[in-house]
Write a protein that binds this DNA or RNA. Structure first.
Lengths: 201, 201
DNA sequence: GAGAGATATATGACAGAACAAGTATATGTG
DNA sequence: CACATATACTTGTTCTGTCATATATCTCTC
């Protein structure tokens, strides 16, 4: 699965320890398209080592705990390249906000507007973060090859494009509901006043 | 988890069996924002029943297997309403395509263009499906309340907006790489170029 | 010198999700 | 008549991801 290949991908650029992968890669560089927690990273590294896709050397440090530094093998590189060009499969859609929205038909307009506004705010925060990261790119933070730098920039642009589209759509939703409010009479709130239909068990 | 609330949401509209939920709800109506497999649906229904959020009645059918029809309880409705207005949390980003793109710095341009084109095609299929579903909405397929119909339309619009943004961005990526190809000398290929043969991972 | 925080790795327990397969009945198709 | 398909529910297994916690050392600050 993808976490294996994510780790192989980072190791293809440079040798890294589990700690490096967690902090520098997943929490920092890749956080707009993949995340992983520490336990997952360490266990996956073990698995990749068993499969001979990475090698391991222990680096003693003078005044810090030992580091276990992993390096990709030729098998690992082959596995990575095969995966990159393998058949694309879109992950199953799973969007908690659309779920909420779908079921908010019974809520009053003010409540729905508030739910939308809070969702918008979360996406705006994400957008600010993405833009801040793009703005640091030109200024020497990308010391890798030009191509590596280019595709990284592309992933940020992709995340930005989708986030912007989401925010614009949320604004449309707010407008639609506001318009609906203006022309419709104040509504009854169905949620509190449902007729109890169920006997207990 | 969200699946619990998805099921409560559907049951808030009408009583349903596990089979109904799987086929009519998750595979059909909700496939643009949530999916679930059969095992998951049945096990979740059991859990909701244990928690007294739904009730169960068995309906004998003359020439078909019995149906276990579930109905939401007042507790279930309360749980659902609380969840809808609860603090939004954006799910951690997890996009296999961005992962591939990030690590494709070593591939030759033609290969990357092909990977992008195949990804675009998958999104285009999704977009076609979404548009087809929107176009059936006006014509009486939405027999529910006006509000229920409105928010459902909004969820489709949201999925469309994001898919369109993704396709536009993929086109930008293709253009950028084509431009890069035109001006740069033929590149060394660190990876062997691999024939893009489907293989699911 | 006490405590917070960063560096570094590891394990146990568990829930959620995916994948596979099994049971049963009825209908339609070639 | 065999086979596929639709209806309807169930079980087993594995994988993935999350959370909490543990160990150990060093640096910085109050």
């Amino acid at each position: 699965m993808s976490l294996d290949h994510a780790i192989l991908g980072f190791l293809n650029v440079e040798d890294l320890s589990g700690y490096d992968l967690k902090t520098r890669c997943f929490d920092d560089r890749a956080r707009h398209f993949w995340t992983a927690d520490q336990a997952q990273v360490y266990r996956t590294l073990e698995r990749l080592h068993d499969k001979r896709l990475v090698t391991l050397r222990t680096v003693r440090q003078s005044r810090k705990p030992d580091r276990k530094v992993y390096a990709i093998t030729d098998n690992g590189r082959r596995e990575l390249a095969d995966w990159i060009v393998s058949k694309p499969h879109l992950p199953p859609a799973r969007d908690p906000f659309l779920l909420r929205l779908e079921f908010s038909g019974d809520l009053n307009d003010e409540t729905v507007l508030d739910v939308i506004a809070r969702e918008r705010s979360a996406h705006q925060d994400r957008l600010d973060d993405l833009r801040a990261r793009v703005s640091t790119l030109g200024s020497g933070s990308c010391e890798a090859t030009e191509r590596t730098c280019l595709v990284h920039r592309m992933t940020l642009d992709g995340a930005i494009a989708r986030t912007r589209a989401t925010i614009d759509w949320l604004d449309d939703c707010s407008e639609t509901i506001s318009a609906h409010m203006a022309q419709a009479p104040p509504q009854r709130t169905l949620f509190e006043s449902r007729t109890p239909k169920g006997d207990t068990r």
